[in-house]
Design a protein around this nucleic acid. Structure first.
Lengths: 217, 217
DNA sequence: GCCACATTACTCGTAGGCGAGTATACGTCG
DNA sequence: CGACGTATACTCGCCTACGAGTAATGTGGC
């Protein structure tokens, strides 16, 4: 199980890594991160910036070293990373990389409730998703190919590509089985929806059947 | 871009789907979900149960239909899904399935900061992760194979398997390149760490090089 | 030389998420 | 028959996230 972090927001990780290079004020951190495209690599909400910086300071991972002001602009507080901060950064990174914690994407949750929608609509939705995905993949591939830096700096992009390619393939396979009706259980699903989708049958369909099937710890 | 949901927690989605079958009180929802192993398919925190139920009611997606008590136990309020709730459920599901919204896993964020750790340690960590992953995959595969229900009920498991298999393969590939030193840029990385990991060089390593390489919108 | 717009640099309010705690009832083992 | 564990069914309060707002300063155009 992943250790509970005192500051759990991914933005905090990016900030710590950033402060390794030099002390900065929050706005500069944001600017640097944005410039490097780091907001592509992690889900960053800029609204959280000052909260996160504040929390990092509160827990001793960073420390204010000076604060200056230019003219009448708001004051800028400059922070540096502390020893504890360095330790937290590496420990956290080690955990993220070394431990395969299961993160469930929304799409997977959606799949587990697919029965709610009628099969024909699901086919249409999956086609839509596949089209989306194919386009995104093409863009990302092109960007990777034309990137003027050694591959070591593009690992996150390559990983993303590999995983999403797998998703696209899987969807394609599923679509095939759905279209030609070879997927076991698809017939009952269709019939259930054609008979007005009676919720009382849903229980016996999704419930009793599924109940036994789960993996045990 | 994904529409902002009035109640955005995935637990809410599961609850709405559950109430399709019949009205329930919160604790029964939790029991049903747990029994069905739905907590395997989405990241559910049981502490949020009553908050989420409250929010669903506040926004008119569910409605209290009766409240009863047995003996001196706390009172139980029974909720049913409303028309608005049904609409929200299907609309939300449609979005989740039909739109390929990019969700960035923590591992990917970690990859983008790999340079912070020394290469040899990264190799060890990736080996660890790969081992983790391989084991989890074996367990999941076995569970899927021995499940006594038609495949249509196991889609989320199959998807998970496909995607994680891709992750494992990708890591394996990377490990190969890392071990035999064929990954472009790996040498500079190693040298930088061996020379005391001077942060001022880090900027030129990760910064300037990467800056140009990002994909444009 | 002044207006409009972008950029810089934050502040604040609020909703929601989540863990820990609480209180009753039931079963059961001796 | 009483004591202790376990299942039932919530309540509470803190902390965090995040979007919207604000205010000063640079900048380009006419």
């Amino acid at each position: 199980m992943a250790k509970r972090r005192k500051v759990g927001n991914m933005l905090a990780l990016a900030i710590l890594a950033n402060l390794l290079a030099k002390p900065m004020h929050p706005y500069e951190m944001a600017a640097t991160l944005r410039e490097r495209g780091k907001d592509q690599d992690m889900p960053i909400k800029w609204g959280s910036l000052y909260t996160v910086v504040g929390n990092l300071e509160k827990h001793g991972f960073i420390r204010a070293v000076q604060s200056e002001r230019q003219g009448l602009r708001p004051e800028r507080t400059i922070y540096e990373i502390t020893e504890a901060g360095r330790a937290e950064l590496t420990d956290w990174l080690r955990e993220i990389v070394g431990v395969a914690e299961r993160e469930i994407p929304r799409f997977e949750a959606g799949l587990s409730l697919l029965g709610v929608l009628p099969p024909d609509e699901v086919v249409a939705l999956l086609e839509q998703r596949l089209a989306d995905l194919t386009e995104q993949l093409a863009t990302a591939e092109a960007a990777l190919r034309s990137a003027p830096v050694p591959r070591i700096f593009l690992l996150e992009g390559e990983y993303d590509l590999a995983v999403r390619r797998a998703e696209a393939d899987w969807i394609e396979g599923l679509l095939g089985e759905l279209r030609d009706g070879t997927l076991p259980g698809a017939k009952q699903w269709r019939e259930w929806h054609e008979n007005g989708a009676d919720p009382s049958q849903l229980l016996s369909l999704m419930g009793e059947l599924t109940a036994e099937g789960g993996p045990e710890a």
